[in-house]
Simulated assay, not measured.
Amino acid sequence: MSATLLLEQLINGLQLGTMLFLMASGLTLVFGVMGLINLAHGAFYMVGAYLTAAVTAASGSFLLGLAAGLSGAAAVGAVVELVVIRRLYHRPHLDQVLATFALILIFSEGTRWLFGSSPLWLNTPEWLAGHVPLPGGARYPLYRLVIIGVGIAVAVGLWWLITRTRLGMRVRAGESDREMIGALGIDISRLYTAVFALGAGLAGLAGALVGALQSVQVGMGEPVLILAFVVIVIGGIGSIKGALLGAVLVGVVDTLGRVFLPLAFRAVLPPAEATDVGAALASMLIYILMAVILAFKPRGLFAAHD
């Protein structure tokens, strides 16, 4: 194993982690403030990717497509909150799960009806298509580094929003005592809509950015949603700091496991068997990580209400 390969895979893990953070931060905000289990969060990821691909293809501008993906996902999230989610806040979690699962089916079939079943492709813009040299002579895609930079910028922006603004103060108060802030005259319904739209917009941004790395297709948000739930469980539900650390841990562990476990097993197994065994164990690593962390920190690393 070379140091260059290890460095490259660490950066890959960090890039995956920042993408997961964009997903998980919105999800943990919604659950922390509203107590809502939102299985449809991955649909906003898909909406952001499709809108970015469609607008970029029509306009030729990736930045315009990116803005459309972010704002469009946020707008769709606000509409969904007003029309559907608002009726679920005081319902049992099972009702929330069933209703938001139905939203997954509606979004999937609606997207298939609008865009067809064939995947869309979003090319990396030319001004981001270069490479950056790494120690050892390797070259790393600039676009992936930009995704890491965007994730860091969003993390700093969310920290500022939550800790330094009036909206953030209301969000933190809503996590602690939503009845009290309602009694103080704050419109809790508008706060919920704003938080839900923010979470949807972040998921849409994640989908918009990843759309240039993979095909944009129906159902692309569900596998990422599972990882996002793992992230918020590890980090602590309702904690942005926990979501960031959990996302980086999951991204790095998953990436390194998928690359190096098959290589490690080749020392004791034939190549074909080593690949199969290594891949199987690698797919379990993040869940093993979650189990180990929860054994010592049952509410996650940075539970919001500790």
Rank of each mutant, 00 (worst) to 15 (best):
L213T: 13
L161V: 14
G182Q: 01
G17N: 02
R112N: 14
G219W: 02
L105K: 01
R299C: 14
I181P: 14
V277L: 15
L105H: 03
G236S: 05
A54K: 00
P223S: 04
P133L: 00
P125F: 13
V47C: 04
T255Y: 12
L6A: 05
L202S: 00
D95K: 02
A203T: 00
L158G: 11
K297A: 14
W121C: 04
V250M: 10
L142I: 04
F196S: 06
I37P: 00
M284W: 08
V47E: 03
V292A: 12
V76M: 10
G257T: 05
E273D: 13
L39G: 07
T165C: 11
T56D: 06
A74E: 11
G236P: 06
E81K: 02
L16R: 10
G199D: 12
G60R: 01
V55H: 07
H41K: 07
I288V: 15
R178C: 09
L29D: 06
I106Y: 09
G149Q: 05
G65N: 04
R172I: 04
M19G: 14
L191I: 13
V132R: 00
V224E: 11
R87A: 12
P262Q: 06
S215G: 09
I85C: 10
P135R: 01
Y192M: 04
S118P: 08
F115T: 07
G35N: 11
T56V: 11
L198M: 12
I106E: 06
L301N: 00
G199S: 09
R87K: 05
G204Q: 00
L158R: 02
L249W: 05
N38H: 13
L249E: 12
F196C: 08
G110Q: 03
V250A: 09
V224W: 15
E81F: 02
A99L: 03
T4C: 04
L122T: 00
L120Q: 06
S283M: 14
A274D: 07
F302P: 03
G185R: 03
Q9Y: 15
A280S: 15
A247R: 00
Q96R: 02
G151K: 02
G65T: 01
I188A: 12
L202W: 05
L66W: 09
M169G: 11
P262S: 03
Q15C: 15
P270V: 09
G219R: 01
G116T: 07
T111V: 15
R112H: 11
N38Y: 03
D187G: 09
F101D: 08
A153N: 04
V33R: 03
V218Q: 10
S283G: 00
S283L: 10
G257C: 06
I85E: 14
S108L: 11
L145Y: 06
L269F: 11
A203F: 06
G60N: 03
P270S: 10
V268D: 13
A49D: 05
V277Q: 01
A68Y: 01
Q9E: 14
D254L: 07
G17R: 04
A78H: 04
I162L: 15
L36C: 04
A200H: 08
F62I: 05
I181M: 13
F44S: 01
S25R: 06
L261W: 00
G26Q: 10
A212P: 02
P223V: 10
L128D: 13
R112S: 14
E222W: 12
V233T: 10
L158E: 12
G221V: 05
T52S: 07
A282D: 01
W121V: 15
N12R: 01
H131I: 12
Y140E: 08
G110M: 07
P92S: 14
V231I: 08
